[in-house]
């Protein structure tokens, strides 16, 4: 009997811990997205040159890969997450300025933003309500992501618009898979650090938004 009580107590404390990670992740994610929006607006206002995007993305990724893991378990980790997301948002400025200058630009940006939000919320709701374990996707998604990076390198030199379109579509599919995978990891206790969980989900949202912008930009401008 006592053992049953202990098991139930352990389970409920594990669920509480999971809920806390989930709540903190979504709270930090919301704040970082708002902050990115602000830095993107600032970058647009300052009329930053196109190379800002490249510098910000490379800088953000390097900090996310090499600096953040060292500070993820301290309060400094939160500051670093804001630094990374602020940089990525700032890098978006010139891209948004370029799309805004297109005849249908405002519509493309609005649809990309709304589309990204709907995809993220829909997939998160799916993973949260079904509570399915998507841990089997890890290898598949990583291999898919590496193949996409190889294709992207090839297309830098080939510059085929149809290939850009295909790459963007595949990136959205892979990032959708990562949303399911990351959310499922939080639910099942595979990720207990909300700072790392936040940056993972932020990267998926960022990539979906950029890819949607590219797809709608190509398809929305026939000339």
């Amino acid at each position: 009997m006592n053992q049953n009580y202990t098991t139930i107590a352990q389970k409920s404390s594990s669920v509480l811990a999971t809920n806390k990670v989930l709540r903190n992740t979504y709270m930090l994610l919301s704040l970082t997205l708002l902050f990115s929006g602000l830095t993107a607006a600032l970058s647009m206002f300052m009329n930053m040159p196109p190379m800002t995007y490249l510098v910000s993305v490379i800088g953000g990724m390097v900090i996310a890969m090499f600096v953040l893991p060292r500070f993820a378990h301290s309060t400094a980790g939160i500051g670093i997450v804001f630094l990374i997301t602020g940089m990525l948002g700032f890098g978006l400025g010139p891209i948004l300025t370029m799309y805004a200058s297109l005849p249908n630009g405002g519509n493309i940006i609005t649809l990309s933003l709304a589309g990204t939000g709907i995809i993220f919320l829909g997939l998160s709701a799916y993973a949260l309500t079904t509570r399915k374990d998507f841990s089997f996707l890890g290898g598949f998604l990583m291999v898919g992501f590496l193949l996409v990076l190889l294709a992207a390198i090839a297309n830098i030199f080939l510059a085929i618009p149809a290939m850009s379109l295909a790459i963007s579509a595949v990136v959205i599919m892979i990032m959708s898979g990562f949303i399911l995978y990351d959310t499922s990891r939080i639910i099942h206790g595979g990720e207990t650090n909300y700072v790392l969980a936040t940056i993972g989900l932020y990267m998926t949202i960022f990539n979906i938004f950029i890819s949607l912008l590219q797809i709608l930009g190509i398809m929305g401008n026939d000339d």
Binding site: L111, G115, G122, F136, L216, M219, G220
Partner: peptide, 24 residues
């Protein structure tokens, strides 16, 4: 069945993107 539960939302995402392309 686990793979099906992964592909199902992906198909929905694909259809949703097609809808967005039609809207733009």
């Amino acid at each position: 069945s686990e793979w099906m539960s992964f592909f199902f939302p992906l198909i929905v995402v694909f259809l949703f993107i097609t809808l967005l392309v039609a809207l733009v």
